[in-house]
C-alpha cells in the first residue's frame, strides 16, 4: 500500500472540500460531484442529484404532496413543481396549488423513487461524512 498515494488523495480531498463552489470546477460525472462536496452536505448533495424526479413529501401536519423536485438548498428547503396533494378529498383547498416551496423544517419524510437511490454511493458518502464531521 502506497502511503504517498493516500497522502496525495487526502490533500486532493481537502482541496476540493474547501473550494467554495465545487460546481464551478465542472466535474463531468455526477458521482464525482457527489463525493467531493464539503462535509455535512450529504443530503443536500443527494437531493441535488435527485432534481427532476418525482417525490412525495410528507409534512409534519400529515399533508402529503407529490411532485417533481425542482430544487433544494442547504436547509433542505424544497421546491416542487406539478404538485398534487395525495389525499385530495381531505385537503380540497390545495387543489389549485401547482408549484410550491416547502420549508425544510416542516418536512417529516420524503418518499424517494427506487431508481434515485444508489445504495453503494450512499454508504460511501455516509462513511466519508462520519469521518469528516
Amino acid at each position: 500500500m502506497s502511503g504517498k498515494f493516500i497522502h496525495y488523495f487526502d490533500l486532493l480531498d481537502v482541496y476540493v472540500r474547501s473550494s467554495v463552489d465545487v460546481a464551478a470546477f465542472g466535474f463531468p460525472s455526477p458521482q464525482l460531484r457527489f463525493f467531493s462536496l464539503r462535509a455535512n452536505m450529504l443530503f443536500f448533495s443527494y437531493f441535488k442529484d435527485l432534481v427532476g424526479r418525482e417525490v412525495t413529501v410528507e409534512l409534519k401536519n400529515d399533508l402529503a404532496i407529490r411532485g417533481t423536485l425542482h430544487s433544494v438548498d442547504q436547509y433542505l428547503n424544497i421546491k416542487l413543481e406539478n404538485t398534487r396533494v395525495v389525499d385530495q378529498d381531505k385537503y380540497p383547498h390545495m387543489l389549485s396549488v401547482r408549484n410550491c416551496f416547502i420549508r425544510g423544517s416542516v418536512v417529516r419524510y420524503v418518499q424517494l423513487p427506487p431508481e434515485g437511490v444508489d445504495i453503494e454511493l450512499l454508504h460511501d458518502a455516509t462513511r466519508r461524512e462520519a469521518r469528516g464531521g
Partner: peptide, 29 residues
C-alpha cells in the same frame, strides 16, 4: 449502516428499515 434498525419518532411513529445513509442531525435514508 446497511443493517435493519428501529427508529422511534415523534407523534407515536415507529420505523423499521435498512439504514443506507445518515448525518449528524440524524437525517436518514
Amino acid at each position: 449502516l446497511d443493517e435493519r434498525i428501529y427508529v422511534k419518532l415523534r407523534s407515536d411513529r415507529e420505523l423499521r428499515g435498512k439504514l443506507h445513509a445518515y448525518d449528524q442531525h440524524l437525517n436518514m435514508i
